[in-house]
Design a protein around this nucleic acid. Sequence first.
DNA 1: TATGAATGAGCGTTCATTCAT
DNA 2: CATGAATGAACGCTCATTCAT
Lengths: 217, 217, 217, 217
Amino acid sequence: MKMNNSKVDSLLAGGESGELTDKQKRIVEAAIEMFSEKGFAASSTSEIAKRAGVAEGTIFRHYKTKKELLLAIVTPVMGNLVAPFIVKDLEKVLEKDYEFYEEFLEAMVRNRQAFIQKHLPIVRILVQEIPFHEELRGQFIEHVAKDLYARFANIVSHFQEKGELVQMPPTSVVRLTISSILGFFLARYIFLPEYEWNEEEEIEMTIQFIMNGVKAR
Amino acid sequence: MKMNNSKVDSLLAGGESGELTDKQKRIVEAAIEMFSEKGFAASSTSEIAKRAGVAEGTIFRHYKTKKELLLAIVTPVMGNLVAPFIVKDLEKVLEKDYEFYEEFLEAMVRNRQAFIQKHLPIVRILVQEIPFHEELRGQFIEHVAKDLYARFANIVSHFQEKGELVQMPPTSVVRLTISSILGFFLARYIFLPEYEWNEEEEIEMTIQFIMNGVKAR
Amino acid sequence: MKMNNSKVDSLLAGGESGELTDKQKRIVEAAIEMFSEKGFAASSTSEIAKRAGVAEGTIFRHYKTKKELLLAIVTPVMGNLVAPFIVKDLEKVLEKDYEFYEEFLEAMVRNRQAFIQKHLPIVRILVQEIPFHEELRGQFIEHVAKDLYARFANIVSHFQEKGELVQMPPTSVVRLTISSILGFFLARYIFLPEYEWNEEEEIEMTIQFIMNGVKAR
Amino acid sequence: MKMNNSKVDSLLAGGESGELTDKQKRIVEAAIEMFSEKGFAASSTSEIAKRAGVAEGTIFRHYKTKKELLLAIVTPVMGNLVAPFIVKDLEKVLEKDYEFYEEFLEAMVRNRQAFIQKHLPIVRILVQEIPFHEELRGQFIEHVAKDLYARFANIVSHFQEKGELVQMPPTSVVRLTISSILGFFLARYIFLPEYEWNEEEEIEMTIQFIMNGVKAR
DNA sequence: TATGAATGAGCGTTCATTCAT
DNA sequence: CATGAATGAACGCTCATTCAT
């Protein structure tokens, strides 16, 4: 009776796929919809249950509290938002898969854009709920501020040593790069998603913009 | 018993100052605190009333619904977030108060930073609640996408004609400029307010970064 | 609109009478009925509300939790179950209002019987819930074990010195006296209330029984 | 995996021993613990299952309802609380195993004390739940009021005829005897179990007390 | 104008019980 | 025989809102 062509991919199953039962998947899907549309606090477990086509009690069999459901949805995405490309791509960068910063930037942006598009509703939830949940803020700072930031700075140093990038503190280069990209993603996907974006062009321009700002003169 | 050295400035009084009674001010202050800390949906009118030192009914005497209270807080700031410098500064720009784009940028950033700092909790509410309230999104698009965006583009055109800025579509210059600045403000004040920012330096760098990206070559 | 010929007497109003509003009285009355019939844990606030003819929320306006409602009902009776006759009657005893232990016993039993009869449902709740609520057990030990027991022992010593009572440890005399009386009250009012008791006769016999057990020979 | 040195003795197996499976025993033990600690209504089948180390469904395979589980625990003890000594000892008494009422009393009290100590948690449940369950009250009245009371009265008559006991209605002698003993047991084991009792002495005194009250003069 | 008692719908959560495996 | 996922009614409690005072 198990169906596996689910919309909820293996990210949420905690590593091994197929760990979520059919009903659990429907609960998670319904919760993602609701949380991202109305926010966590304004979403009721009873409506989530209705939308998932399960009894309300069933939610609490799988997730002790409503908040645990939120974290089960958001935590794995938070990790993967940042983790994978860092580990893999960091090696690629240092192993000269990318000869220029611009190349690396290009790859990174495309890769993260694909990820965000795929998990858009969850990313929305993440962004929207971070201010209200200590745990999320903690994880976010851990992953973004520590992991991503630190490793990114290494990459920047690498290209600075190659004489490709301007001699500015690496953390500032990182901050400006990330905030330009993030600024675009937030505008594009969170705050003004209905606006008609010429995505290809905007991304290209954003990268040029960053490069102009940080390349060695 | 009326005190007038209130923290809630005349912005919220709807144009003419002194319109808000003492109790009304305390309600608004309490609501701002709570909404920005816990979010609109997770804030209860009963706790707002308690914090304001008024009866729960008093809130509803002044604001028909809880949502009306939210809008009363957020709407005037949304307007002023964008409106004033546009009207005034637009004239100034065109009247050559600012000879260079960089000068204008500098002035604008400082001015908006001061505004955001002054109204930080309300700006937080604004950013946090926009995704959940049609009205807010409507106002935001109206003010930002139409007013700010359009007028800003005029300014950019002005400097492009002077040969100071690169020949890129003005809307893209605007988008990149705004998203760099907004990216900084969001990181600085909303998502990582506890991080130790070297504000002066970051702003200067952000402006240089933008200028490198957009100035004519 | 206030009526004061209520069944809930001033005991529960916290000392000054008339402190309980009309609805509060109805809530307390309904709760007493239900708690004593079905027990605290098996009584639902929704049914209490229905029986009291108020909205469920009204209960929680007056009592923060269901348990607080229980304590508000039971605490004052616990105090008065023991306190008043002790303070007053102790003086009376020592001031020779009662020349013989039997006389004192007689008065005490009658007085407490009247009290128990008047507050029977609450006393039932008290007896039934003591095993499950730390606070109640604490209060009970405080009042009964400490206050009543100690003062009662003084009275017994007094009559032992007069040569009226047997030379047994006063605490044992107290324990036997109380357990004989309590044994009767528990059987009569709690465990077998439907049995046809010849109350007058039983009390008389119980007192004689106690006297035979404790009087000096 | 079956262990047979179980704490749940054959009393609960319904007469023939070995009828309870290992899991059943663990269910019953867990239920006894919980019912006596928190009361029947406040104990959940899910926690009983957890404590017993079985699935929740397993409980309902053996006991159709939660209440049936309660009755399965409490009924056999209720019977044995009263039945055995009556049947056997009644014969012993009449066959002059006990020459004096005091002797009989002594034996009975010791015997019942041992029984209560052994089954204390179940006796607690019994006492605590009697007020809330018709069936229990019915059984209690049946066993105590009819069986015990009636047979006990016969014994008293027997000693009255021997001229050993005062000429009081036998039922009153019984009532006073039982309530003195019960009063002690309730205080000792139910209401003030933590108090430091000098058990031996108290029992001796209680018996003397009763004898003084009922022996012929 | 300000109050706060009152409301009843709705909240997140737990419950005893069922039943397909 | 045993399981534990699933149920949906009921739980204690909070909510935004109303209204008589």
